[in-house]
Structure formats: C-alpha cells, structure tokens
Amino acid sequence: MSSTTTFKVRPATLRDAKTIAELHNMTVREAYKALLGDTPIPTMPLDKRQAYWREAIEYSEPQVQVALDDDKIVGFVGFDRSRDKGTPPTMGEIWAIYVTPDYWAKGVGLALWDAAREGLQDEGCTHVSVWVPIANERAMRFHELAGFKREMSTAKTVPIGAAKIEEIRLKRALN
C-alpha cells in the first residue's frame, strides 16, 4: 500500500456489524494500552458490541460508515446529533472513530472524517464535537489537525474498568 492510497467509504450494512465489533474491541485495546499501562483493559463482550453496532446500523443512531481497503473493512465512524445536554440541534458529534492499527497514519481516519463531516452537514449540523482521552496523543493530534479545538471547561474523569481517564470535548465548525 502506498501513501497515495485512497480509501472507499460507504454506509455500513448489517453484515458489517461483526467486523465493526471486532475492529472496535481490537482498536480499543491497542489505543488504551498506553493510557492504562498494566491495568487490564476492559472490552465489551463481542456479542454485545456486535448487537450495539447492528442496532446502530439498522436505526442509523448513530449513522455508521466504514472505510475499505479493497473489500476489507479497515475503519469505521459513527456520527449523529450531539448527545451532550444543552447542545442545539445543529451540533453534531463523532460518537466513535476507529481505524485498525495497521492502517494508522495512512489516510483512513481522514477519509472517515470527511464522510462524517459530509453526513452531518446533510443533516443540517453546523458544528461537531468529539470526546477524546486527553492522554491519547494520537487521537488528540488527529482531531486537532482536522481543525477541532479543545474546550478546556469540559474535562471530565471517566471510569474504564478499574482505571480512570480524563476526557475532553473538542469542537469545530463544519463549514
């Protein structure tokens, strides 16, 4: 695969739910290794994660798109209106964006972000937010390069199994 590879992004189908669930669990483990050290990284049982993504795909809550390298799913994004209390209906949210580690820094995330941005604009959203662990330098860098800005007053502690991590909301306009 060359650095000029482009990735096709399409709406997820119900048949994609298992692959999305597997990719989600694997990527969470990899991404959280650096954040949690020796603390065991909890992952949702595959059947529950698959049921979640199956329902999301079926009801478009959130909307789910997958990135493909040929016919292989290498990433996915879930997006919809913001779940945060008090946000206007024009505020969208990236609920999840994950890329298999073998494809990190190869343009998959950008292709998924472009698809989510277009989908949110089609829904009438003018702004978008995303929650990111502060210590996840890769995710923070990706979103900041995509134009997101940290909202410092939103930092919160989130339990991840026996550990706790700090998350912060990032936001940007969709224009």
Rank of each mutant, 00 (worst) to 15 (best):
M1F: 07
M1C: 10
S3Q: 11
S3L: 04
S3N: 10
T6D: 02
K8P: 01
V9E: 12
V9L: 13
R10T: 15
R15F: 07
R15M: 03
T19R: 06
T19L: 04
T19H: 05
I20H: 08
E22Y: 00
L23K: 08
L23N: 08
N25H: 03
T27V: 03
T27A: 02
V28Y: 09
V28E: 07
R29E: 03
G37M: 10
G37E: 10
G37N: 05
G37Y: 12
T39H: 11
P42T: 08
P42C: 13
P42Q: 06
T43E: 13
T43P: 12
M44P: 00
L46M: 07
Q50S: 13
A51F: 03
A51Q: 01
Y52E: 06
E55C: 13
I57A: 04
E58Q: 09
E58Y: 04
Y59W: 10
S60C: 14
E61D: 11
E61V: 12
Q63S: 15
V64C: 12
V64S: 04
Q65K: 09
L68R: 03
D69P: 11
D70V: 14
D70I: 13
D70H: 15
K72L: 12
G75R: 11
G75I: 11
G75W: 15
F76W: 11
F76V: 00
V77F: 11
F79I: 08
F79D: 01
D80R: 06
D80C: 12
D80G: 12
R81D: 11
R81V: 10
K85Y: 00
K85E: 04
T87A: 04
T87V: 02
M91K: 07
E93A: 14
E93F: 10
I94T: 10
W95I: 05
W95M: 02
A96Y: 01
I97N: 08
W104H: 01
W104I: 09
W104Q: 04
K106M: 08
G107C: 06
G107Y: 13
L110Y: 09
L110T: 15
L112P: 00
W113D: 03
D114T: 13
R117T: 15
R117D: 07
E118N: 06
G119A: 14
G119I: 10
G124K: 12
G124P: 14
T126D: 10
V128G: 10
V128F: 13
S129C: 13
V130D: 00
V130P: 00
P133M: 15
I134Y: 04
I134F: 01
I134C: 01
I134L: 02
I134P: 03
A135Q: 14
N136Y: 05
E137C: 06
E137V: 10
E137G: 05
R138N: 00
A139S: 05
R141L: 14
R141I: 04
F142G: 00
F142T: 05
E144Y: 03
E144Q: 02
G147T: 15
F148A: 12
R150G: 02
R150P: 03
R150V: 15
R150N: 05
E151S: 03
M152Y: 07
S153A: 04
S153F: 04
K156H: 12
V158W: 00
V158D: 09
G161H: 02
K164D: 06
K164F: 09
I165K: 01
E166W: 07
E167L: 01
E167C: 07
I168H: 06
I168E: 07
R169N: 07
R169K: 15
R169F: 11
K171C: 09
A173S: 11
N175V: 14
